[in-house]
Design a protein around this nucleic acid. Structure first.
Lengths: 141, 141
DNA sequence: GCCAAAACTGCAACTATATTGCAATTCACA
DNA sequence: TGTGAATTGCAATATAGTTGCAGTTTTGGC
């Protein structure tokens, strides 16, 4: 996809979700669109280069995106939160993530999925199930 | 279990895992033994009261316990890491955790389990699979 | 295009969480 | 009971995320 197509796509997504198409939001969404794995605030900022908005702004955009389900947080072994688009997930289940305990790299396992948990005690309502696998990646095993 | 039985149990576990039975390690392990859910450093310190070791010591003990598999870290929605004994888990899979998005409480779902993920691409080696569910607990739903 | 309201951004200060270095203490075991 | 190794506490530091507020940009109605 060309960069201008990507920009158009980001703008469409923002409009559809009733967000303003500000420079910062478009830029950040583009980074998420081209990434094949969840990114931390730190990584996003590095990818965005000179034009990058303020750290606080990055956090605030991510928070807004999360609130409306455009993006979600992934809770991994790393200390920092990571963020990814929700498009590879169903309402109730996020695709599994694999994190290499050697190199620290995270992989999205978009091809695999697990059933939703059953037999929960009465009263528990599931919003989202996340699966988080720890191990060695092909490069480190 | 009486307090002295608990102490004995903690000491046995420490010895079996080749740890010294220091006051701090016994105290901390006792807290983990009586807890039915993963605890953060903060929560551990609160539970230990006056006799509580230094924050840094708590982190260091937890780290040592994790290294030898006595304890493991759970990666949840909360910003702080949580720790629990490994005894309710199999080698490859930790029991699922449920975190209420309303009250923030975490529940161990020791009765339920999911199959291990299959069909991973060649070269991936699984060490541990964690399942993390987000939703509403009986009190909040 | 121009204007007002709403949404968004940047800066500075701050809070929470975890880590490091090093000297002092405690522990296991001969 | 003495000794080396393991453990601990304190102070300083690093890292991650948040808050308040003033200023800027964006949108939507004219």
């Amino acid at each position: 996809m060309t960069n201008s197509n990507l920009t158009t796509k980001a703008e469409e997504i923002l409009k559809a979700a009733k967000f303003n198409c500000t420079k910062a939001q478009v830029l950040l969404l583009k980074e998420l669109l081209i990434s094949d794995k969840p990114l931390s605030r730190e990584e996003l900022i590095q990818h965005m280069g000179q034009k990058c908005p303020d750290t606080v702004t990055v956090y605030r955009i991510l928070e807004r995106f999360c609130e409306r389900g455009l993006v979600h947080k992934v809770y991994l072994q790393s200390r920092a939160w990571k963020y990814e688009l929700g498009h590879n997930c169903t309402t109730k289940q996020c695709h599994p993530h694999f994190t290499c305990s050697d190199c620290g790299e995270t992989f999205c396992l978009t091809g695999s999925s697990l059933p939703l948990i059953k037999d929960l005690k009465k009263g528990f309502v599931i919003h989202r199930q996340q699966v988080n696998i720890d191990g060695l990646c092909p490069a480190c095993s």
